[in-house]
Amino acid sequence: MSLKRRTKFEQRFEQFIGNLLRVGVILATTLVLIGGILYLIRHGTEVPNYQFFRGVSPEFRTPDGVKTSILLGRNRGIIQLGLLLLIATPVIRVIFSLFAFIKLRDFTYIIVTLIVLLGLIYSLI
C-alpha cells in the first residue's frame, strides 16, 4: 500500500489555508478585544437596565452599517467588524478551496465544496 505523494501545489495550498485561518482568527480576535476594551472604558461603569429588552441596533445588521458605525467612532462597530471577519474567514477558506480543486480538476471535491459554499451563503442570507 503506497501513500499518494502530495504535489508542491498541494503542500503550498495547505500551508496557505492554514495561514489564512490563523491570521483571520487572530485579526478577528484582536479587533473584538480592542473594541471590547474601548467599550468597557467608555461604558463599563454604567448600570444595565434589564427591565427592557433592546435588540441589536439597525446599524449593525449590514456590513455597510458596521462601516458607518466605525467611521463615527462607535466602539461596538469595532466589535461587530471583528465578528464579521470571524464569520468571513471560513467562507473565504471554502472559496479558495474551490479554486484549488478546480485547478486540480478533482470533480468530486468541486461538487462537495460547491454544496458547502451554497449552504454557507444560504445561511448568511
Rank of each mutant, 00 (worst) to 15 (best):
M1W: 14
L3D: 11
K4E: 12
K4G: 14
R6T: 07
R6M: 15
R6E: 10
K8A: 11
F9V: 08
E10K: 07
Q11V: 06
F13M: 01
E14T: 12
Q15V: 08
Q15M: 11
Q15T: 10
F16H: 01
L20C: 05
L21S: 10
L21Y: 12
R22V: 06
V23W: 09
V25M: 14
L27I: 06
L27G: 02
T29S: 13
T30M: 12
T30V: 14
L31V: 08
V32Y: 03
V32Q: 07
L33P: 12
I34Q: 04
I34W: 02
G36F: 09
I37R: 03
Y39M: 11
Y39W: 13
L40D: 14
I41E: 12
R42F: 06
G44D: 03
G44Q: 14
T45R: 15
T45A: 14
E46F: 15
V47N: 09
V47Y: 02
Q51N: 13
Q51R: 11
Q51I: 10
F52E: 12
F52N: 15
R54Y: 14
G55D: 05
G55W: 01
G55K: 02
V56T: 14
V56A: 14
S57F: 08
S57G: 07
P58S: 06
T62M: 02
P63W: 01
D64I: 13
K67M: 12
K67Y: 10
K67S: 04
T68K: 06
T68I: 12
I70N: 00
L71W: 00
L71D: 05
G73E: 04
G73R: 05
G73K: 00
R74S: 15
N75R: 08
N75S: 10
N75I: 13
R76M: 15
G77L: 02
I78G: 00
I78S: 04
I78K: 00
I79F: 09
L81P: 00
L81W: 11
L83T: 13
L84Q: 11
L84F: 07
L85D: 02
L85I: 02
L86F: 07
I87G: 12
I87Y: 14
A88K: 04
A88I: 00
A88W: 06
A88E: 00
A88Y: 04
P90G: 04
V91D: 06
I92R: 08
I92V: 05
I92T: 08
R93W: 04
V94G: 06
F96I: 05
F96H: 08
S97C: 14
L98Q: 01
F99P: 03
F99Q: 07
F99R: 08
F101Y: 09
I102E: 06
L104P: 05
L104F: 06
L104Q: 04
R105E: 01
D106S: 09
F107T: 07
F107N: 11
T108R: 13
Y109I: 15
I110Q: 01
I110G: 09
I111W: 11
V112N: 08
T113A: 02
T113E: 00
L114G: 05
I115Y: 06
I115Q: 11
V116K: 03
L117Y: 00
L118G: 10
G119F: 05
L120M: 07
I121R: 01
Y122A: 04
